[in-house]
């Protein structure tokens, strides 16, 4: 499927909850996943990125061997139940080509969502995966990472203030 790119205004609209967990939904999820996997470097995608304004996201960061993850996540009507820790890191977006920027995200989240069959699930996500989930859920509310950019200098000083992230 074709990925919408900003300044397409449709990316700024709020998506609606999924009500029907049927074969059509599952076909759409499969096509959405195909689109994500066909995009270089893409570890997540949200339905509005392909012009479907329903609360569906897919995240799969298992290609990053060093980061803990839940494998392939299909999150329908997702809600973040809790947040913990904040960190700045770099993000890009399939809908915003040729740009990456620094964004503050929670480091650890608990997210509740339905799977493709409509069963409620709960996941604990950390680090890279947590960032991906927050980025995709933002799409459902019409938010892009561009709405959350922090400057390099902010990054530098925040990192100093939070202090104890010295790497080996």
């Amino acid at each position: 499927m074709k990925i919408l790119t900003y300044p397409d205004e449709r990316l700024k609209q709020v998506s609606q909850p999924v009500a029907q967990f049927d074969e059509r939904l599952r076909t759409f999820v499969a096509r959405l996943e195909e689109t994500m996997r066909a995009s270089p470097g893409g570890v997540g995608i949200a339905a509005p990125q392909v012009g479907c304004f329903q609360r569906i996201v897919i995240v799969d960061v298992s290609s990053r061997p060093k980061s803990a993850n839940n494998g392939r996540l299909v999150l329908i009507n997702p809600e973040i139940l809790s947040w913990e820790g904040m960190a700045t890191s770099r993000e890009g977006c399939l809908s915003v080509p040729d740009y990456t920027g620094n964004v503050m995200r929670a480091e650890r989240i608990t997210v509740q969502a339905c799977d493709e069959l409509g069963s409620p699930r709960e996941f604990l996500c950390n680090g890279f995966e947590a960032r991906a989930v927050q980025h995709e859920i933002d799409h459902l509310d019409g938010l892009l990472f561009l709405d959350r950019l922090v400057s390099r200098r902010t990054d530098l000083f925040r990192r100093k203030r939070y202090g104890n992230r010295k790497s080996a």
């Binding site: 995009s39 270089p40 470097g41 893409g42 570890v43 997540g44 995608i45 949200a46 995240v59 990053r64 980061s67 890191s89 770099r90 993000e91 890009g92 977006c93 399939l94 990456t100 890279f128 960032r131 991906a132 980025h135 995709e136 799409h139 992230r165 010295k166 790497s167």
Partner: peptide, 11 residues
Amino acid sequence: VSLEPVETMIG
């Protein structure tokens, strides 16, 4: 001196 990888998340 501290070094950390920048892992860009593309979503």
